[in-house]
């Protein structure tokens, strides 16, 4: 579904992303883990053609993202609050996205009714603009909006951050259901190793822009990841001590 070819991104001599080859199969759920500055958001932004790669390119469903826009109709993403329109209410926002994706109000309402649990009565029918909602509630709106119009690729950057425990559990359920659909490819990034191992069938670890691990999730994955990041922490301490 998604293929990364020789992708690199350099800001003033500082390479923040460098991936020679990465292929994500259709219908899979794909997890991206890494410390701050590992290049997760950069990769997602490049995938959405929001930044221009220094070298290489990304293909989405066989379409080069920076030369055609045809991938847009099958792709939905929520990266950060710049994907929300602050002066709309949640309903207005959902309908707006719906209209862009060729869904009428009834379609959108039908979809929203499935997420009443997830919203926990804090989103719909509230007399508030999105900019006045809490961070967590904004996130709920953004996540659900990506599901409007049956996208084939769903990209969520740090979807678990800022959510309360109940909502985190519900979100995991939602992602699992999504990835059960053989037509939907889900891409998730997270700092929470436990959540990612639970919802993703494949996990890639980025470190300073380079793929350092590529694991098919199994019972041992969590331990492996914890060891990897724990080792990093130890290595850093040793390095500091040596200095």
């Amino acid at each position: 579904m998604i293929a990364v070819h020789n992708l690199s991104k350099t800001y003033t001599g500082n390479t923040v992303l460098n991936i020679e080859h990465l292929e994500i199969e259709k219908g899979k759920s794909f997890g991206l883990v890494g410390n701050n500055g590992a290049g997760k958001t950069t990769l997602f932004s490049a995938l959405l053609d929001l930044i221009q790669p220094t070298t290489g390119y990304i293909e989405n469903n066989g379409i080069k993202v920076n030369s055609s826009e045809d991938w847009k109709s099958i792709t939905a993403a929520f990266i950060d609050e710049s994907f929300l329109i602050g002066y709309l209410t949640a309903e207005e926002y959902f309908y707006f996205i719906g209209e862009l994706r060729g869904q009428n109000k009834a379609d959108v309402d039908a979809l929203l009714s499935k997420f009443e649990d997830f919203f926990h009565g804090e989103i719909l029918g509230k007399k508030k603009y999105l900019r006045d909602l809490s961070k967590g509630n904004q996130k709920k709106v953004g996540i659900v909006a990506t599901l409007i119009g049956n996208p084939e690729v769903v990209i969520l950057d740090e979807p678990f951050a800022n959510l309360d425990p109940t909502t985190q559990i519900r979100l995991k359920q939602i992602i699992k259901e999504l990835s059960a659909d053989p037509n939907v490819t889900v891409l998730v990034s997270s700092h929470d190793l436990m959540h990612v191992t639970e919802v993703c069938e494949r996990i890639v670890v980025l470190d300073k822009g380079i793929v350092v691990k590529d694991i098919v999730t199994s019972a041992e994955t969590l331990k492996e990841l914890e060891e990897h990041f724990g080792k990093n922490a130890i290595a850093d301490t040793v390095e500091e001590a040596n200095q």
Partner: peptide, 12 residues
């Protein structure tokens, strides 16, 4: 401008 990335990633 505050939601330009959204506009740019939608099918517009």
């Amino acid at each position: 401008s505050s939601y330009y990335p959204l506009m740019m990633s939608q099918n517009i």
